[in-house]
Measured scan of single mutants.
Amino acid sequence: DHDVVPEDKFQETLHLKEKEGCPQAFHALLSWLLTQDSTAILDFWRVLFKDYNLERYGRLQPILDSFPKDVDLSQPRKGRKPPAVPKALVPPPRLPTKRKASEEARAAAPAALTPRGTASPGSQLKAKPPKKPESSAEQQRLPLGNGIQTMSASVQRAVAMSSGDVPGARGAVEGILIQQVFESGGSKKCIQVGGEFYTPSKFEDSGSGKNKARSSSGPKPLVRAKGAQGAAPGGGEARLGQQGSVPAPLALPSDPQLHQKNEDECAVCRDGGELICCDGCPRAFHLACLSPPLREIPSGTWRCSSCLQATVQEVQPRAEEPRPQEPPVETPLPPGLRSAGEEVRGPPGEPLAGMDTTLVYKHLPAPPSAAPLPGLDSSALHPLLCVGPEGQQNLAPGARCGVCGDGTDVLRCTHCAAAFHWRCHFPAGTSRPGTGLRCRSCSGDVTPAPVEGVLAPSPARLAPGPAKDDTASHEPALHRDDLESLLSEHTFDGILQWAIQSMARPAAPFPS
């Protein structure tokens, strides 16, 4: 592969990997390779389809078979030569091979799209000592099968071997295949498990690692696999990028399955594409389908809103127990993405979901129960707010008499603000006073009005108090039968009158 990737590009890729991570280095090298001529790309395919690569990765054979028959990708048995050289000459001794072996032994695996480039050397060096003999053996194999790289107009793939297949390693990572398949204008990513390549439709969760975000852009890794992070704060999961590491605690105790298979379609829109997988259930989501939507993949363990709600429900009964003089119970939860139609709101002032922060849900004790107040519409209280300059209440639009249902020339009671006709409430011909108009209920007259088809109010509507207090003497005590009587009149003013009279009014101040 030294004929494909020059030394300066190799060093530039290593520097970019240390600065921005393996995914960015892979993407940059792939983009550079696509700008080369067809001879360089053909050399790339020839390096990929060597015999030892085909033996190690069985899924490469179907890719090789898909090439046109007129494309010669065979390799000479006596060494490598550029395709432009007409004579089959043995190339001179390859010093770059020693360079590659020494550099890969030092860096474990470079971040390139060629056999030198995919593992994360920093994480491997940190986690190597417990498994040094086995990992050293794996390093000797890295130059042979560490990076199976493929690129063409139909298929483009980048393979990364790992030393996680050490025997006896619980939940060992089998390997990473960062794979971009450009077929019919689409893009897919796969993962390699035990020599087999699994596409998103049959993606397997190998051991402790999972394909957290099938994305090839942005600074985030394709698999949430930063070796420096180790395990999740809650004892979460091992990262795919942690090559040759000792077994780590796999999943939280509440995880239903340690080796679950995540779905390959969004649980909201039932469509495929780039998904984020939940650590607590097999569901996966688009970032845009979450509520609120996320802009980037959160670091650490992530769970959907259903799993978060289940966790909150487990903690909430203990938080609601009476604990005198104790601060509110704080339950730190990872930043969760909410699927459509589901929402768990945190306290005000918290950062938005999706940031690399930890939301704190506070379970406050329930407030003391209070008697429910009568629910009145805002339009129902409008007549009470229509007060004239002299303190006389004006008529609201649409006000109707509670007896006849007519809204023409209605009066407004100064005591309960109900609309009424003087002739309907006082049919006996009582003279109307000039000021202080009161309806039949507030004036103490319980004589029913002779209106055909309208039920008369119940005599129990009024329960006047002592006459010594004029204001308190007109406080009506309405009961269920009074409400039914008012409802039978089918008037809004009657219902409003009952609601206003049912509310307690402050006692009249004593004259000074």
Rank of each mutant, 00 (worst) to 15 (best):
F510M: 07
C304G: 15
P365D: 05
A380L: 14
N394Q: 05
A477F: 05
C304W: 06
C266P: 05
S502P: 04
H425A: 10
A380D: 06
D470T: 14
A380H: 08
L385Q: 13
A507W: 04
S458H: 14
S441V: 02
A248I: 09
R283V: 08
C307Q: 14
P466W: 14
P511V: 08
D493V: 01
S473H: 11
V360P: 03
L486N: 00
S485I: 08
L275P: 09
A508R: 02
L337G: 11
D377C: 12
A456Q: 02
Q325C: 09
P334T: 12
S488K: 01
R412C: 02
L337A: 06
D469R: 04
A267C: 14
T408P: 12
P365E: 10
A467W: 14
E263A: 06
P397E: 10
L384Q: 11
D406A: 11
C416D: 04
G434H: 14
C289M: 11
I276C: 07
F492G: 02
L290Y: 04
A371R: 10
R338P: 05
C277R: 08
G429L: 07
L333G: 05
C289I: 03
L275I: 08
P347L: 08
D409C: 08
C401H: 02
A477R: 03
D255F: 15
F492T: 00
A251T: 08
A449Y: 14
G402Y: 03
L373D: 07
L364H: 02
V312K: 13
L487K: 04
H415S: 02
H286R: 10
P322Y: 15
V344C: 14
E314Y: 14
V387F: 10
P282G: 05
P253G: 11
Q257I: 04
P249F: 05
T447R: 08
D409V: 01
Q393P: 11
G244I: 13
R412F: 02
R412T: 05
T331F: 02
G436W: 11
V315C: 07
G391T: 15
P365Y: 15
C404M: 01
N394G: 10
A267T: 10
G300W: 15
L250C: 07
G434D: 06
D482I: 02
R432P: 07
L308R: 12
A499I: 04
V403A: 02
I495V: 07
T471N: 06
S458I: 11
H363V: 13
P367R: 12
S245I: 10
E274G: 12
